[in-house]
Nucleic acid binder design. Structure first.
Lengths: 209, 209
DNA sequence: AAGTTCAGTGTACGGTTGTACACCGAACAG
DNA sequence: CTGTTCGGTGTACAACCGTACACTGAACTT
């Protein structure tokens, strides 16, 4: 059955099981309330073996941030591609957002749970990644507002507001009961209108020079 | 020394000490990671006496939401008064926000920590209060946009966006190092510009009829 | 083929947790 | 004045926690 994997492969597999187990446990509780023993149990190893992979739950948490940011990064790429196909940037963005959240609820849940609630290390890791995300968006905005001489500070400000609006939608989406997927519609609709409202404001904005 | 308080007064005092102790412990960790025993210890009572006041930490958490929402409600009142004195609504609002956060950091920290990270009961209590807050703002916005025939749905949408922007600023403010209070300035400045950007968008917006 | 590395095991420990139970004594109601 | 109420105490216990330590055996190196 098991086709004699290398040691490194087996280790990697267990590592992944630890991450998955944590992500799954986090669906209902916060990282701080999950014990090392629980995670180990869920991953099918003995508690002390945990230390072969991470020196503490906090360390695992920091790595989990990277892991969970992948769908977010994927989102940016998809959204940019979506813009090419589909004329309406905002509609395309919200659609990508909705799909990514639906496909990776645990990752998004982890990020929203720990963004403010977590341990300092995890919190900072998330904040750093989110800042990167905002900067990338600011770059995109710069392209769209070329010729309107927006200051980079204002671009950052606008991008930050858009990210806040999107994250707010994400968190609301995560509260939607799986058995009533229709509840997601008004949330997405609102997010779309919010982004349009911001875009409308931007078209009238003039940076102080 | 102790002027023979009534039994009810003593009980209320202990209750308050329990709430304060929890708020203080929460400065660094999440509610879920705080034990009943810790809170009791901090409040100066024996663990089993805790049950004379709350049936569990979760129950205490729900009550703490009410307690912590007080500064937020205070904020609305002050902001409305501030508008009367001071012509610039947005500037006045951001100033009130800054002061309230500075004066009640523990309460705001608790709310931001537990809004998404907490137990279901606490989370829902916070969300309910925040929805109320948004509705009140929507009412104020309705007054300001009178004559532009905004739909109530759009008012809600705009209020929700403003609240998201303000809360995002609050959370960033809470991360500011106390020894470097100047770090709060750019955050507040950004929040102000974001609100202005939204207002600008609103002045151009037309609700679908 | 022999020796080394190392992911995972099993046992053991002291510390903390939530909570059950019997109790106390001061504030209370009559 | 007498009996009751009830906030707070003290002891006790089983469950869980993180982690130290000595170990095994299969995957690796030589």
């Amino acid at each position: 059955m098991v086709e004699s994997l290398t040691r490194a492969e087996r280790k990697e597999a267990t590592r992944q099981r630890l991450l998955d187990a944590t992500l799954q446990l986090i669906a209902n509780r916060s990282l701080a309330s999950i014990s090392l023993r629980e995670v180990a149990r869920e991953a099918g190893i003995v508690p002390t073996a945990f230390y072969r992979h991470y020196e503490s739950m906090d360390a695992l948490g920091v790595e989990l941030v990277d892991e969970s940011m992948r769908p977010l990064r994927q989102m940016i790429r998809e959204a940019r591609r979506g813009v090419a196909d589909h004329g309406d940037i905002i509609k395309a963005t919200v659609e990508v957002l909705a799909r990514q959240v639906r496909q990776n609820p645990d990752q998004f849940r982890f990020l929203s749970r720990e963004r403010y609630g977590g341990v300092r290390g995890v919190r900072r890791a998330i904040e750093t990644e989110l800042r990167l995300f905002t900067s990338e968006l600011a770059v995109d905005l710069a392209r769209l507002t070329a010729g309107f001489d927006w200051s980079s500070d204002d671009l950052e400000m606008a991008a930050n507001l858009m990210v806040a609006a999107m994250l707010s939608a994400v968190m609301d989406l995560l509260e939607v009961d799986d058995r009533r997927p229709g509840d997601a519609v008004p949330i997405l609709d609102r997010a779309e209108r919010q982004l349009r409202l911001i875009a409308l404001g931007m078209s009238e904005w003039r940076s102080k020079t």
